[in-house]
């Protein structure tokens, strides 16, 4: 189970060499548990990416808040 994480990672990130990838896919076909692990890991990585985007949104909001008065005046006048 533990070593699957590393293998699955290489598979999901698309950095697995061709022959290894084919072997891994064959292994998945024969092993439903491995198939499930891959599915869960794929969703985990997706969650991590969405989380990363949310952190970026927070950083960008902080940039907006910290910008100078002239900038804020321009923006306010646009939406008047």
């Amino acid at each position: 189970m533990k070593e699957h994480i590393t293998e699955t990672e290489a598979y999901l990130l698309g950095i697995m060499p061709e022959t290894e990838r084919l072997l891994f896919e064959a292994k998945m076909l024969a092993d439903p548990a491995l198939q499930e692990d891959v599915k869960h890991q794929r969703r985990a990585i997706q969650m991590i990416r969405w989380y990363g985007r949310d952190l970026q949104r927070e950083r960008l909001s902080a940039i907006y808040d910290a910008l100078d008065a002239e900038f804020h005046l321009t923006i306010t006048s646009i939406f008047k």
Binding site: I45, M47, I48, R49, W50, Y51, G52, R53, D54, L55
Partner: peptide, 23 residues
């Protein structure tokens, strides 16, 4: 819901992981 759960219950891990997988 899952994203929210991970955000609150697993914040430290999520920060570390996003640094690697996202950033």
């Amino acid at each position: 819901p899952l994203l929210e759960y991970l955000r609150t219950a697993g914040e430290k891990c999520m920060q570390l992981l996003q640094a690697f997988y996202y950033e």
